[in-house]
């Protein structure tokens, strides 16, 4: 801003009438801002759940937990299968009549 314009601006401001603010103007402004920023209350538990699911943090955490659980359960099951197959191989070699 040009410093030479300051006296001119002051003069212009003085010529313009400044209306008085209504009572509690500032409080009302802040209340409106807070109301606008506050999330809307969900209508039902289903909406609340949907809102929760759509939160990126929750979605990412749930996906990670499911992935880990799947890997854990799959590894356990795979180990059981390997163990069972190996056991059957051994049994077939030492006691073939049992498997007939």
């Amino acid at each position: 801003m040009n410093t030479e314009d300051i006296p001119l601006q002051t003069l212009l401001r003085q010529t313009r009438p400044a209306p008085a603010l209504p009572p509690r103007f500032q409080q009302n402004v802040w209340r409106r801002i807070e109301d606008a920023e506050a999330p809307a209350q969900p209508a039902s538990w289903l909406d609340a759940l949907a809102n929760l699911i759509l939160r990126p943090r929750f979605a990412l955490a749930a996906a990670a937990v499911l992935l880990l659980m799947g890997v854990f359960a799959g590894t356990l099951e795979g180990r059981q299968m390997v163990r069972h197959d190996a056991q059957m191989n051994y049994l077939a070699s030492v006691a073939p009549h049992v498997l007939r």
Partner: peptide, 11 residues
Amino acid sequence: GSYFTAQRATV
């Protein structure tokens, strides 16, 4: 997906 992948990989 993770269950079957892990199971197959282990086997």
